[in-house]
Design a protein around this nucleic acid. Sequence first.
DNA 1: GATGAATGAGTCTTCATTCAT
DNA 2: AATGAATGAAGACTCATTCAT
Lengths: 196, 196, 196, 196
Amino acid sequence: MARPNVEALRKKQILRSALQQISERGVVGLRVSDVAKGAGVSGGIVHYYFDTKVDLIRAAFEENAAQSLERRAAIFADEDADVRSTLHALVDTYLPADDTTTESWRVWIEWWAAALRDDDLAEVHNRAYEDWAARVQSVFGRVDGIDADTARSHATVLVALLDGLTIQALMGSPTMTVDHMRATCRRTVDLLLAAG
Amino acid sequence: MARPNVEALRKKQILRSALQQISERGVVGLRVSDVAKGAGVSGGIVHYYFDTKVDLIRAAFEENAAQSLERRAAIFADEDADVRSTLHALVDTYLPADDTTTESWRVWIEWWAAALRDDDLAEVHNRAYEDWAARVQSVFGRVDGIDADTARSHATVLVALLDGLTIQALMGSPTMTVDHMRATCRRTVDLLLAAG
Amino acid sequence: MARPNVEALRKKQILRSALQQISERGVVGLRVSDVAKGAGVSGGIVHYYFDTKVDLIRAAFEENAAQSLERRAAIFADEDADVRSTLHALVDTYLPADDTTTESWRVWIEWWAAALRDDDLAEVHNRAYEDWAARVQSVFGRVDGIDADTARSHATVLVALLDGLTIQALMGSPTMTVDHMRATCRRTVDLLLAAG
Amino acid sequence: MARPNVEALRKKQILRSALQQISERGVVGLRVSDVAKGAGVSGGIVHYYFDTKVDLIRAAFEENAAQSLERRAAIFADEDADVRSTLHALVDTYLPADDTTTESWRVWIEWWAAALRDDDLAEVHNRAYEDWAARVQSVFGRVDGIDADTARSHATVLVALLDGLTIQALMGSPTMTVDHMRATCRRTVDLLLAAG
DNA sequence: GATGAATGAGTCTTCATTCAT
DNA sequence: AATGAATGAAGACTCATTCAT
């Protein structure tokens, strides 16, 4: 009675737990009972909020995308900042250096695998990417002499590069350290800006 | 004494089937019985050659890496060819345009997810990447004025770009078509070569 | 809150069924699904209460030992009764004459075989035997002129004799009938008492 | 060609391996492939000599009984020896003191469990016991004043006692050591002889 | 006689999902 | 809203047995 958003609260609790589980054990190893345990609720309640395990996973991925964007909101908001600095700062927030970012990246990789055979998942993924690429594009677009097409192309390259390098970093590649990743990204950003 | 290498033959048969299954259903959905069916053998025989499902999956990933390299062997072998043409040709073989390449890429994505929680898998993956990056580096290195470090850096960027763009292409992104992917890669290759 | 001890109840139910199965089909032939069927529950629930088949078997053996002792509790409790009568009565309860006793004996034989390669099982067995031998010893000890050592020795002989004779009776030996077994045991009891 | 009793030789080889396996892993854990390995032959050949696993087990048990009797043949043969010494010597050969005897005892325990649900096995067992009891009876019968019935009764007690005590010894009971077992048996033998 | 690859039935075990309380 | 006992389908894995060579 009265306690208002118990529902919303519980859902968030469960989704956070699900994301943690996905990061730790993968979609493959995700057990509803573990998600419940991690959220401090009973197994049955998860199905009260999410009809099936698949629904839960989808919602978790959406939550992950939302969080990702939210974490970079401040950087995108400051439209007066220097483009180069903005891009470098952006790159920095994507480096899998801290636990939060690493967990998020692991979820993205799981997402890619899952989306390969779930069109809904792929669609949500594409919307998230489109959103994110558009924002990066608008940063490049702030430079004089860079038209929309070029800005978009640059954004595409940078986004893809971040994904590709992170994969290697998360695989524990001995050559792809976080520092090496940052240097490579910055160098490429500079190259793209120089190319105009 | 008469029977030749039934063992090697059977193993290959099973691994091909496993790779197909991984591409279609993912590691998550891989059922030993389906692998057997796909290989035209009984369920028991799979366990005769591979102790556990995990062993089978590992062997399948290694097979995938070996096949990937083998498919580009000819391009790397021709050391007299023009660098730009070679890189463009290389890019072309990585575009997820045909079934074989697409299947292989799907397996790679599955691999990334699986390697996140299996160190052995990650190690095999890193060796495969190191191998492949070294070859691309040696192509860049054929250009006068590009030293080893720069060549390596260029190779890293190109490899990561291919991975990153393919992810988007395989997600069915409406903007990332195979043609767009080829154009973006070629442009970046040219940019890197121009940068020296 | 309302549900009482479903857990304890269900466990007992399952253990009874397991003991029946062990007696009928042996540890070798025990199928979890049969135990479930015998207990009138689904297959999955057995694993809800017992992690593995081995755990179930262990618990069943312990239950068997507990029941065995419980069934003789009244005889041991009456410490004023005549020693000879008490021992004869004890012997009688061990004759594999009725279904309950026979089932229990069959489980003991299975236990011996199983304990040969399971130290935990052997330990529980030894505790049960020690318990049982100590009680028989205390009966012999009630006789004047029988010291503790002798009482213990007599107890050991009687216990071993019961086991040894029962084996032959349960093998269906044509010579070792229940009556013959009773006579042999009583005669030995009398001989031991006479020896002092 | 010509090598005569390859068959008989192979059979023995396989049976010895089977007995060892039964002693080590029990009838439950006996795998035909392990028997083959232990005998140094291929898995298929076992079925050339024994139609089914059950046949193999039966033959192994018979072999065990035959060996048991054979090992005591000398003691029974010396009919001029002192009865008490003969019985004490007999007891000694039954103590699970060395590997051979222990292995044999473990097989007997397995046999009891198996015979509980295999009438053929029980019958062979009973014949073996009858044989063995008759011999012990004839030893007791050599004493003046002990008639056939009494001798038989004494034999029954001694045989059962040996079985019962061995069970406890093989369970690893801390109180039932080999020495304790010998003492208990000798004391009982003396008691029986004294009773006449 | 001997081999070992191949089969396929049999079972344990896991886990998403349901539902009485 | 919440619990957790109960279900049952699904799938990995084992192993006796067969049979082409």
